[in-house]
C-alpha cells in the first residue's frame, strides 16, 4: 500500500509535552494549545492526506519527542 492510501493518526503524549508549541505553529489544522499551553490533538487526530507533510514536520520539530504519527 502506498503512503497516500495509508491513514495516519497524530498522537500527543501529555506526559512528554512541555508546551513548546512547535507543533501548534507547524500544523495548526491538527494541533492546538490548551489554556496552559500544552498541545492537544484536534478532533480524532486522523490526518487528511493533504496535511500529512505538516503532520510530519510537527513530529520532527518536537524537542521532547512528545508527538507521534501512527498508522491508523
Amino acid at each position: 500500500m502506498s503512503e497516500q492510501d495509508q491513514q495516519f493518526v497524530l498522537f500527543i503524549s501529555s506526559e512528554r509535552c512541555q508546551g513548546h508549541s512547535r507543533c501548534c505553529s507547524l500544523a495548526p489544522e491538527l494541533v492546538a494549545s490548551d489554556d496552559y499551553g500544552y498541545a492537544q490533538v484536534i478532533g480524532d487526530g486522523i490526518v487528511p492526506a493533504d496535511l500529512l507533510s505538516k503532520a510530519k514536520l510537527a513530529v520532527a520539530n518536537c524537542p521532547e519527542f512528545a508527538i507521534r504519527l501512527n498508522r491508523a
Partner: peptide
C-alpha cells in the same frame, strides 16, 4: 532548516515559560 527540534528554550519540565512570548 525544516527539521529543527532545537533546545534553545530548554528541555523537559523547565521549558522556558516565556518561549511563546519570545518567539
Amino acid at each position: 532548516r525544516a527539521h529543527n527540534p532545537h533546545a534553545a528554550f530548554g528541555l523537559g519540565r523547565h521549558r522556558c515559560l516565556g518561549s511563546n512570548l519570545a518567539r
